[in-house]
């Protein structure tokens, strides 16, 4: 085994053990925090596949999380078991993802960003006016009785692990390769006999499904849903997280999202929590201007 791979696996195992044993020594607040980070990470993995790997911007991630969350909440209200509600929420988010994929397939760059933004905002705006989803006053999530607090925690840990495995398998398969090709030179992909639209659609659907999964878990985490929790700023936070993680690596995306949510949750004083947006905006801008690399180059040439 190559040393790099060995390192990767050992970090993974250590992290897994740490996460699984957290309830033994961690406080309730730290458990909540880890749950939140993991949920964001799941949505971030989907976004990494779509935006990082395939180079397709989506500003609608929060909308798909809303679909997952509200579907779960609604089905639980109808008395469905959790084991059915979550998969159905994922499926529905994926299906709605097709609706975005149809127009998005033909679009590039700024137009794609506009459409996905309209899509995401449209979904939360539709929810906030729809009475059977609680409209703007929100909706209670009837968490199943048999799910104690640590039960939810373990469920989130296990599901995010499975999601991570799924995303990395996808990335290293021929799909990941084709997505990367689409990101770099879409027209060349056609000359290789690959129908880019097909793989792009799947990227949208898979990204939406990841968001749906994150949304479903988030519903259980929040226990009360309101359309404002799924606003545009959530999509931007996720984007800022994967940009912070370097955009092109799955592990980077998870790390970036974890770092950003820890920063926002813990380090910023509560009365200045809106500085989180300033931070996210600054991250997005600095990384697009490649300031970290530029600074590093200057340091290298001047001092090293």
């Amino acid at each position: 085994m190559a040393p790099k791979q060995f390192l990767k696996y050992s970090i993974g195992i250590l992290l897994g053990l740490g996460l699984l044993s957290l309830p033994l020594f961690g406080s309730a607040a730290s458990i909540r925090l880890v749950e939140l980070v993991l949920i964001y990470s799941i949505a971030g993995m989907g976004l990494q596949l779509l935006t990082g790997q395939a180079g397709l911007i989506s500003l609608g991630q929060a909308g798909f999380m809303a679909i997952g969350a509200y579907t779960t909440a609604y089905l639980l209200q109808l008395g469905w078991p959790l084991a059915l509600a979550i998969p159905l929420a994922v499926l529905l988010s994926g299906l709605v993802g097709i609706l975005l994929a149809i127009p998005a397939n033909r679009l590039s760059g700024p137009y794609l960003a506009i459409v996905s933004l309209a899509f995401g905002i449209g979904i939360s705006s539709w929810i906030s006016h729809t009475n059977w989803l609680g409209a703007s006053s929100g909706m209670r999530v009837l968490t199943p009785q048999q799910l104690p607090e640590t039960g939810l925690y373990f469920m989130i840990v296990i599901i995010s692990f499975v999601a991570y495995i799924g995303a990395s398998v996808l990335r290293s398969s021929k799909w990941g390769l084709i997505w990367q090709g689409i990101r770099e030179q879409e027209i060349l992909i056609a000359h290789l006999g690959i129908k880019a639209a097909y793989y792009k659609s799947w990227a949208f659907v898979i990204c939406a499904a990841f968001a749906g999964l994150a949304g479903a878990l988030w519903a259980l985490y929040l226990t009360y849903l309101s359309p404002t929790s799924f606003g545009f700023t959530l999509s931007i936070s996720l984007l800022a997280g994967i940009v912070l993680g370097g955009l092109y690596k799955l592990e980077g995306a998870i790390l970036g999202i974890a770092l950003l949510s820890l920063l926002k949750q813990n380090l910023l004083p509560t009365d200045l929590s809106s500085l989180g947006w300033v931070l996210e905006g600054a991250i997005l801008m600095l990384f697009m201007l490649a300031l970290p690399q530029r600074l590093w180059q200057i340091i290298q040439t001047k001092w090293l």
């Binding site: 911007i57 760059g109 960003a113 996210e280 905006g281 600054a282 801008m285 697009m288």
Partner: peptide, 19 residues
């Protein structure tokens, strides 16, 4: 490229919003 430009302006947007 378009990708970077869009994300840069989004960043500026959320920056102003945060301010």
């Amino acid at each position: 490229n378009h990708f970077k430009s869009v994300i840069l302006t989004l960043g500026l947007q959320i920056l102003c919003f945060g301010i």
